[in-house]
Design a protein around this nucleic acid. Structure first.
Lengths: 404, 404
DNA sequence: CTCTGGCACTCGATCTTACCGAGTGCCAGA
DNA sequence: TCTGGCACTCGGTAAGATCGAGTGCCAGAG
């Protein structure tokens, strides 16, 4: 589609622009290595590249800037995956050798690591509950008319489901229910309980306005007023059906059913996977328009949007989404996303990603994101245990060669 | 210290500046209600106010701007607590009537609410674990050589402690340990286990080299490199000793000891109380210097710093900390913090706060923060249950009168 | 003694103009 | 087909020029 010379010129323009954030002129390109022609020739080629939509001029007599199409071509054909520098490889290795602890803790730290590696904002999404299996379950009487169902998943995540009891149940009922619950759900996938619990449907019938299904915009929430900040994220949807069906719990079995139903609906803590945002402050370095920063941060506050964004990109088989054309979020018009999946127990589960301006260093971001993704997969490969894994020395997936 | 007229003028200057963010001139003041004198007179008074440090001129022939001392006087003597508008009262009432669910969920939502009420960034700190009592405890075998101790606290928080087992213990040992753990810790304060736990003192198994003393900095942590983002927050301290002493766990009792020790040290998930930051994007609206935004966001990423900040301010008996002089954080030089405590089960536990530019609307922020604090206290007044509380209609502590 | 209107003065913000130079498009010659 | 040359464009910056909000001070009124 593009002959070699044009491609080389495009690559040079992109690389230079990534570095300087300034429109780049023909003479710079002519001077860069690999281009054996004069600036006049480069200019000629640039005219072509521009007419085909790979470059634009902010105005006459300015250098050229890559378009989203230009970046896309660069990423697909020219950039490759890039490599991390030695220091960064080291950093990754040390990090994964020493990062012990619960899954959330590790993921949060990972988001910081990734932010530091790339210089931009990092996004790490927790594996959704349905990729794990229930390891333990218990119902705890919290006093009053409340109980808390606690689930431990095989990946180390703990989910909580607040249960409202219609009346003071006897302690022994709760105890019995707890035991029955454990017997019934251990070893199963939490989300699979939705359908398997016959009682669920019964309950659902009892509740006219039950589970409006996440992502549906439920009712008259505070009218999303001015602040884009607090508006979005399906706040409404979650806020409503947060307590479990209170239809007719009287026996232990009823209680277990109710809990199973709640679990199946995923009404508990681990909605669709928590998001950890690292290095949000770096966003402020990406743009000089304070308004842009505001908009981007606004999006980052809407975790559901972020999760969806990453998942969408991945679902479409992409690892890079450049500009609003490809990711679809207006406020992120000047941004691109680079993502990679990671696996837990061998199954694709979570995602890691980097959010930066469209003029970010894609090869580097790709490298960082994929290394981190691999390392995370490595950590939770065998069993979904929560802690440790003292694989030092071996930095397995860290395929890191010197960067340019 | 300041005669009535000076005070009135100072009040007018502060109010005006809060509204417009522009230096305010004598004629504006003279025109505002409550000032019955000419601009010349106002000017004269302003000279005094300036010489005493309540006001400054950005440059000759500009209006005056309040100094931190000026704000302080305003807050202490002039501003009062302020009142929320009817719409906002409504919003708070609806929010607390409908916000069900786990404590973390409610607190996160609360931070958004507060951000929306004030227009600035809101900070909500989870109650520390030691203000609650353990309601349930269990040790879950996670496969491999890992186990997870799960604690349910009376305030609805669930803590997790990853435990590394030296060798494959028999399942029954874990089961027994789990039962013993429950018997031993239920009803106690988690942090009280540190000393009361016989682990350090004694208990049957004499353990020669037990307890390698967590909190000792274990490894060569990544050298806190450049990025201020990922640097701070005592990352090192936490990262290292994240797994419990693995000295010589062989019996169930050993295991229980180890877990108790870990709990006592607070090595688990609920470090010193999670922080929920709401409306961070609003920070970008507060300043037009992108660099300032970056610095402030950088601080917000360091949760430990935020917790400490809020706690410090509260400990000093303040509810407002104006400027770096009073809160001590250089990067927040242009910011003030307004805080209020909230109670769980009658004891002061968490804090809510608002972070804004020094020229924020203190009365409004104070009103919002205290109302929200009261409402949170109200919610968890009786029992530290996790969910619900359908007190609608009654908007208890929402003492809200029309604002200016 | 205090307050007020008046007045000269200051100085940042804004606008105008001029200029510079990076970068372009085009063209004639190698 | 490539290259050096050349006229041209136009954003960015610097230098005045201007405007006006706001000040300090002072003399006169209350």
């Amino acid at each position: 589609m593009l002959d070699d010379r044009k491609a080389a010129i495009l690559r040079a323009v992109v690389s230079e622009y990534i570095k300087t954030a300034q429109p780049v002129g023909s003479s710079h390109i002519a001077a860069s290595p690999g281009i054996g022609v004069s600036s006049a020739t480069v200019r000629g080629e640039m005219v072509h590249l521009e007419s085909e939509g790979y470059l634009v001029q902010p105005h006459t007599s300015a250098g050229r800037v890559p378009t989203e199409k230009g970046y896309r071509f660069f990423v697909d054909q020219l950039g490759g995956v890039g490599r991390l520098g030695a220091a960064q490889r080291m950093q990754v290795r040390e990090f994964f050798a020493s990062a012990h602890g619960e899954i959330e803790y590790v993921l949060e730290k990972t988001s910081r690591l990734l932010a530091q590696l790339t210089g931009w904002t990092a996004l790490v999404v927790e594996p959704p509950a349905d990729s794990s299996v229930i390891r333990a379950a218990q119902i705890v009487d919290m006093g009053g008319s409340t109980a808390l169902a606690v689930l431990v998943l095989s990946n180390g995540v703990v989910e909580k489901y607040p249960i409202e009891l219609p009346s003071e149940l006897d302690c022994s009922v709760i105890g019995e229910a707890s035991a029955r619950l454990a017997a019934r759900v251990i070893g199963k996938h939490p989300r699979s309980l939705s359908s398997s619990s016959a009682f669920g449907e019964r309950l659902e019938g009892d509740r006219p306005d039950s589970s409006p299904g996440p992502l549906s915009s439920a009712g008259g929430d505070r009218s999303s007023s001015e602040g884009s900040a607090a508006g979005g994220e399906g706040a409404a949807a979650k806020q409503s059906s947060r307590t479990t069906g209170r239809g007719s719990i009287s026996t232990a079995e009823d209680l277990v059913d109710a809990v199973c139903f709640a679990i199946g609906c995923g009404e508990g803590s681990a909605e669709s996977g928590q998001v950890f945002v690292g290095g949000a402050s770096q966003m402020a370095a990406a743009f000089d328009a304070v308004e842009t920063v505001r908009e981007v941060l606004g999006i980052l506050e809407q975790h559901l949007v972020v999760v969806t964004l990453l998942r969408d990109v991945l679902d479409r088989g992409l690892s890079v989404a450049i500009g609003v054309e490809e990711h679809g979020l207006e406020p992120l018009a000047a941004c691109s996303v680079v993502v990679a999946p990671y696996e837990v127990e061998g199954k694709p589960s979570g995602t890691v990603g980097v959010l930066g301006p469209t003029r970010m260093d894609y090869p580097r971001a790709l490298a960082a994101v994929s290394v981190v993704g691999e390392q995370l997969s490595e950590r939770w490969k065998d069993a979904g245990r929560s802690g440790s894994g003292s694989r030092s020395g071996n930095d397995g997936g860290v395929r890191a060669v010197e960067s340019e």
